[in-house]
Design a protein around this nucleic acid. Structure first.
Lengths: 226, 226
DNA sequence: CTGATTTTGACAATTTTTTGACAAATCGTT
DNA sequence: AACGATTTGTCAAAAAATTGTCAAAATCAG
């Protein structure tokens, strides 16, 4: 889940934005002035900062500059009320990644946030293709073959296999699966994991009753072997 | 990796841009005046030039003209502070490929760079004409035929098909479509993508209910197969 | 202004995910 | 080896989420 710091002195606007962001499953911290923001930023890791340009104590521009001067590179989206303020401010010297002027639609704000987060966080080490036994998988084309015949995997099944492959040989507990594959905003039971293992075995094992790749480690979890 | 030459006399701006570009995995060379730029360009191959309009020695416009006169065709993006300067630039005689006025956000600059590099690499390996099933498309003339009968495609539909063809077999998420086909300053919902797929299917599939070319990959996106 | 295109929103159809019940297997303890 | 407690395998139905579809609203180009 992405963590966003919202810096805005108008309480009503702050609340509105916070609620929208939360409904999109972002975690939001809010402050109403830039010195509080400055502290928060130093004590916490944010994925993105939403910064209103007019703040009581330190100006938003100053905060932005200060952060960049410290080589803090969290993406920053500036929010301004007046178009002509941008001119003074958003110039690149300041180091904001994007800006949006009031009034803006929530949809646009959310879209901009999403666009920036997407750009920043791309998966570093993902195998695009992988094969084991008589199974081969193309994670870019989302195609899986067993003995050259296509098998149908759901999106979650692809994710699980991908995770397994990245952690080959390692025993993964059901809880870890739920954390890492499902994420922090979904809470199925651990039985859900078993069921996915079951269906994956049916699809990729020669003999699902005697799995060679998706191995049960009793009372611990499952592991993948090539 | 793409190689970019950044010509900008303000050191702060130069650094900010350079860092952003590098974080996007571009290789960046920087100079602060146009005669240095001129030499660099002759001794090296750049994929793109970012040129500030106000430079100490030679004017950016002059540099641009000079390069074009030598038939050097590297794409050039002009950066200007004042809106009225654009007029000088756009007049095509200068030969810049795009321009951007200060203030601008990093996101916009990166988007424009991406767009131009994409366009160029597309021109290089151009599928000007393409056919699949009983459909053939001429992307230069913007004409599409199905069983030799013309079908009417909108500009967006052409762009989508073109994007699909460039990424044949690959599954494209709705978000990626919005980024790459719609661009950086428009924020439709992901449902818009579905609707375009729908209308494209009606036009190019024999049986739109059972598409053979525009395939849904549930929970991931769509892919094109020949 | 008009007509075409793009975008949204509602609802239906489809697919996937999750749950829960029960059987089978495992483990530690007699 | 047998027992009981716990964990895992298995299946199918329920719940949830995604996509297909259409039409109306908004936007854009001429």
């Amino acid at each position: 889940m992405h963590k966003i710091l919202l810096i805005e002195d108008d309480a009503a606007i702050r609340l509105a934005i916070k609620e929208s962001l939360e409904s999109e499953n972002y975690f939001v911290d809010e402050v109403d002035n830039s010195s509080a923001a400055f502290n928060k930023i130093h004590n916490d890791n944010y994925d993105l900062i939403l910064l209103d340009l007019i703040l009581p104590d330190m100006d938003g521009v100053e905060l932005c500059k200060k952060l960049r001067a410290e080589d803090i590179r969290v993406p920053i989206i500036m929010v301004t009320s007046r178009k002509d303020e941008i001119d003074k401010v958003i110039g690149l010297e300041i180091g904001a990644d994007d800006y949006i002027t009031k009034p803006f639609s929530m949809r646009e704000l959310l879209a901009r946030i999403k666009a920036i987060l997407r750009r920043v966080s791309f998966d570093a080490s993902k195998p695009e293709k992988y094969s084991f036994g008589n199974v081969s998988i193309d994670f870019k084309k989302f195609v899986a073959l067993k003995e050259d015949k296509p098998i149908k995997l759901s999106a979650t099944e692809f994710r699980i296999l991908h995770y397994f492959i990245q952690h080959e040989g390692e025993v993964i507990s059901r809880d870890k699966f739920l954390d890492d594959v499902w994420g922090y905003d979904s809470f199925p039971t651990t039985r859900t994991v078993d069921n996915f293992i079951l269906s994956l075995r049916k699809k990729i094992e020669d003999n699902p009753a005697e799995p060679k790749h998706l191995i049960t480690v009793h009372k611990i979890g499952y592991k993948f072997t090539r």
